[in-house]
Design a protein around this nucleic acid. Structure first.
Lengths: 156, 156
DNA sequence: CCAATTTCAGAGTAACTGATATCG
DNA sequence: CCGATATCAGTTACTCTGAAATTG
């Protein structure tokens, strides 16, 4: 389930984001299964397509998960030859990842099915509102990335 | 991880929602642990506070999860005497849930800490934009609840 | 008989924490 | 030695699918 809030009172952002996310995940899982891709796998492919050369640690930070979680995803993709990793010439400890040709092909094949989810969700939403929504969420994302403090239980 | 998309191209709604959700969950978990509440448990308490009398099946639908998932949450809360369930007088199969006094107390104690997350995320966002964002997300939620079709793989 | 609800049981996904090793 | 990275191992959180019983 997700984080919640009441009924007639307007729903909170926390609540709605949780619900929408849950719905999106269900839909994605359903569509990705035929390509034998999990959601984290698809996401990693998608991010690496746009940002080739990210390390495991960088990917993890972007996704707000622990590097230990991300590494499993990456390892799986590497095993399937969808992703290739090579040491940074300037820093042997860092392994920079990028899609293989096969990875690109798969991503291209899957993309439309996933993109159509977003199209359907936003079908009736004017462009301006889409932009506002995206902007607000990106801001929230940044806040979360830089870390919050618990102002409520601090007071003790 | 979450559903993804590129880098310089604007991020997609799917991607941002996933990331924000992940960040929110981390933050919530951290704050809820001191009350020994999981996210689904907190959410159920919160929803039941606003909508007393919902059945397990109704709660599940609202949360876009299977009733089999929700029942575990509800059972746990019932064991802890935070929630009480009673048969609908008109339909004995349906068990309507509501918070106990203890449930109300706990929720009240936890609430501020969770609410402050949202406050911090939206601190710099003007009210108009908050409303737009919420409206767009609620619309997306409704779409998801009524079921999408995979227009991409349909074409085969 | 059918549809909706509840609920048990088992499986699976995706995240976590802890610990270790390496590199600059 | 410190900080960041990679990565193994074990664990927890949350959701799913399947199946069965009950009720109107």
């Amino acid at each position: 389930m997700q984080h919640g809030r009441h009924g007639d009172t307007p729903p909170t952002l926390l609540y709605v984001v949780g619900r929408v996310n849950q719905g999106i995940r269900r839909e994605m899982r359903k569509r990705l299964v035929q390509w034998d891709l999990s959601i984290p796998e698809y996401t990693a492919l998608s991010v690496l397509h746009g940002r080739p050369g990210l390390s495991n640690a960088q990917l993890a930070r972007r996704s707000m998960i622990a590097p230990q979680s991300m590494i499993e995803v990456l390892a799986g993709l590497e095993d399937r030859d969808l992703v290739r990793r090579a040491a940074d010439p300037a820093h042997a400890r860092i392994l920079r990842a990028e899609l293989t040709d096969e990875g690109h092909e798969l991503l291209e094949a899957v993309q439309p099915s996933v993109d159509s989810i977003e199209d359907q969700l936003l079908a009736a939403v004017p462009g301006r509102q889409r932009e506002t929504t995206l902007k607000v969420l990106v801001r929230a994302m940044d806040r979360l990335a830089s870390g919050l403090d618990d102002s409520a239980s601090e007071a003790e």
